[in-house]
Design a protein around this nucleic acid. Structure first.
Length: 490
RNA sequence: GGCCCCUUGGAGAAGCGGCUUAACUCACCAGCCUUUCACGCUGGCAUUCAGGGGUUCGAAUCCCCUAGGGGUCACCA
């Protein structure tokens, strides 16, 4: 049997990391088993759903590289893929339920129901529907209908049965039907309710495995009851735990924007985000952490998904993204980086060779591409402000001589556009300078390198000097040193 | 309040009754390397698995209780 899974978001907001991880598990499972992955839309919440979010979610999925075989935008044999367009199908199955005597009209008002609920809670009971409308006679129903009352349709939950769910991730979970209570499957406006619509969608689309967030575990017995009433084969369920933030709370506004789009905008690489999400509650058999999408597909196994909640460790994501940035092709990285520079008006006048060179030098320090403009601004600045901690190395007794000597040799360097070549020249220059000054005046390595660094950058730490000079260019390097000397009064 | 799920170091996370004096990763600390900071390398970092009982020759791993966290009980999904 071909595996078929789906992701069925309600388009009421952007795709967030937690949701994306659920999709990823579905997607990996489908790819691993050469199955089909479906994307559909649960838009029955007319108030909050919008096509804008539908497109946004689809765009996020595409950015992550999780393509779908059937569903929204791509079509397929089991469409339409929007619940609001499937009303006929829901009604068709409803008539089967009527025939089997599994459903009934309910005329209770929201106010009545709220009162029942409060009373039950006050008694410490499980607030389930009382079943008040269960026993309405055909005549009573007829009368209310004629009076223009708009009923909901409720599913009749069998009494005193145990519902066993053999969950792929959590193992056996059991529920008592008495804790459930008859639930609404059609709202009074004729729109089906989530618990009913999903089941019909999953049945008609031939979904074999339902992998979804743990918050749906509690819905599962209701859905199982519908499958049973309809006499349809049961899919397998797997309930993935939620994602929490580092303080153990559910990810929320407290943590700010957790959408996938936000990570895209900050210059995280999709491969890194995917890799990171895969490890949020799942782990391969060996302890590999950096895994390509192909490797993930190859290694993915539902049985290795953890039952405990995954915790979103932003620091670890940064580390992982950095790993991917380090390993990226420089040309690709330059392409990805350019928009971030353009956004800050830094792109004009930059050659691609220079950008690539800069990237090669700073990529180790980059957690995400959005951090690049700050480096660029730093490199472009002239003069630089000398930081207080950079003053001591500038005020060494030998500093004046060191800088004079460095400047003289730097200016004597042959002109070249070849950055790597210039890097070699500077490296050789520094070595020689160090050697000469040690022989001549006993100056230590530190007393050579630190003053030059301080004068060149105004700071005491940064990139290797021989990388830095080609980035700055000879002219800017000379100007920066002169200005720093003035600032330090030497 | 009822029901369901979860609980391993500063953080993530393996572990599925003996191979565990708890893997791996991040962070942190120390040493080495580079005649500079960083990078890199090497080493250190839970005698203990929320707490308490039990089962067993043997438990982080199985059972029970307590505590904490989360989910859910909608004419939301």
């Amino acid at each position: 049997m071909t595996v078929k899974v789906r992701f069925a978001p309600s388009p009421t907001g952007p795709l967030h990391i937690g949701g994306a991880r659920t999709v990823l598990f579905n997607w990996l499972f489908a790819r691993r088993h050469k199955g089909i992955f479906v994307l559909r839309s649960e838009d029955t919440d007319l108030e909050r759903s919008s096509e804008k979010w539908e497109r946004d979610i689809a765009a996020s999925l595409r950015w992550l590289g999780m393509n779908w075989d059937e569903g929204l935008e791509v079509g397929g044999p089991n469409g339409p893929y929007r619940q609001t367009e499937r009303l006929e199908i829901y009604k068709e199955y409803l008539s089967k339920l009527w025939l089997g005597g599994h459903v009934y009209y309910c005329f209770c008002t929201p106010e009545e129901l709220a009162r029942d609920r409060e009373e039950a809670m006050a008694r410490g009971d499980n607030p389930v529907y009382s079943g008040r409308c269960r026993g309405l006679t055909p005549a009573q129903i007829e009368e209310k209908l004629r009076a223009g009352l708009k009923p909901t349709i409720r599913f009749m939950v069998p009494e005193e049965t145990e519902i066993l769910i053999d969950d792929l991730i959590r193992g056996q979970v059991s529920f008592q039907s008495r804790d459930i209570g008859d639930f609404i499957i059609f709202k009074s406006d004729g729109i089906p309710t989530y618990n009913y619509a999903v089941v019909i969608d999953d049945i008609t689309m031939g979904i074999t495995h339902i992998i979804r967030a743990n918050e749906h575990l509690i819905n599962t017995p209701r859905q199982v009851l519908i499958y049973q009433a309809l006499g349809e084969p049961m899919p397998k369920f797997g309930h993935v735990s939620v994602v929490l933030d580092t303080s153990g709370r559910k990810m929320s506004k407290r943590m700010g924007d957790m959408s996938v789009g936000r990570y895209a905008r900050q210059g995280y690489l999709p491969e890194a985000v995917v890799n990171f999400m895969a490890l949020l509650g799942w782990s391969p058999e060996d302890s590999t952490e950096i895994m390509s999408i192909d490797q993930l597909v190859e290694a993915f196994d539902l049985s290795r998904i953890s039952k405990s909640p995954g915790i979103f460790d932003a620091q670890k994501l940064d580390w992982m993204n950095n790993q991917y940035i380090r390993a990226s092709d420089l040309d690709m990285l330059a392409d990805l980086a350019l928009p971030f520079l353009e956004a800050e008006g830094l792109a004009k006048g930059l050659t691609r060779e220079w950008l690539k060179y800069v990237l090669a030098v700073v990529r180790d320090e980059l957690q995400c591409l959005a951090q690049l403009p700050d480096f660029i601004k730093e490199f472009l600045a002239c003069p630089v402000q000398v930081q207080p901690e950079a003053l001591p190395p500038l005020q060494l007794e030998t500093t004046g001589m060191v800088l004079d000597e460095f400047l003289a040799r730097l200016e004597a360097l042959p002109e070249t556009e070849d950055l790597p070549q210039q890097q070699q020249q500077v490296q050789a220059l520094l070595k020689q300078l160090n050697k000469d000054l040690k022989a001549r005046a006993g100056v230590s390595g530190k007393a050579v390198y630190m003053p030059i660094r301080a004068a060149l950058t105004g700071a005491v730490s940064g990139q290797e000097l021989y990388y830095l000079v080609p980035i700055l260019g000879k002219e800017r390097a000379v100007a920066r040193i002169k200005s720093s000397r003035q600032q330090a009064g030497i």
